[in-house]
């Protein structure tokens, strides 16, 4: 069970959080101008990497803030968490 560092509250148990999937998928600004393929890409396509994954978490039973985490999907190690809007750390960073 993970121990997750909420950038607002500090280290907390996984049970306080819920995962919200891949991060940094910006919603297109002019959606009407997108082709169906482009819209589908935004809506459904995911990188789903085996390894470093940038993902959103919600501190649901805490500050109720969303934040981002850089987590390895094999070892489950979280190498960084950062606030929404902050620059993601590079993947290799420990």
């Amino acid at each position: 069970m993970f121990l997750i560092e909420c950038p607002w509250c500090g280290l907390r148990d996984e049970t306080e959080f819920s995962c919200a999937g891949e991060a940094h998928i910006a919603r297109p600004l002019e959606t009407e101008k997108l082709s169906d393929e482009e819209w589908a890409d935004y809506l459904f396509m995911r990188s789903n990497p085996k390894g470093a994954h940038r993902e959103q978490w919600l501190h649901a039973a805490g500050c109720r803030r969303y934040f981002n985490a850089l987590r390895d999907t094999v070892t489950y190690k979280i190498s960084a968490t950062y606030k929404i809007g902050e620059t993601p750390p590079s993947e290799g960073k420990k």
């Binding site: 991060a23 919600l58 803030r65 969303y66």
Partner: peptide
């Protein structure tokens, strides 16, 4: 609630 928070916090801060 969680869904609206997500839009607010992550897309339209």
């Amino acid at each position: 609630l969680a869904w609206m928070e997500r839009w607010l916090q992550t897309e339209w801060p």
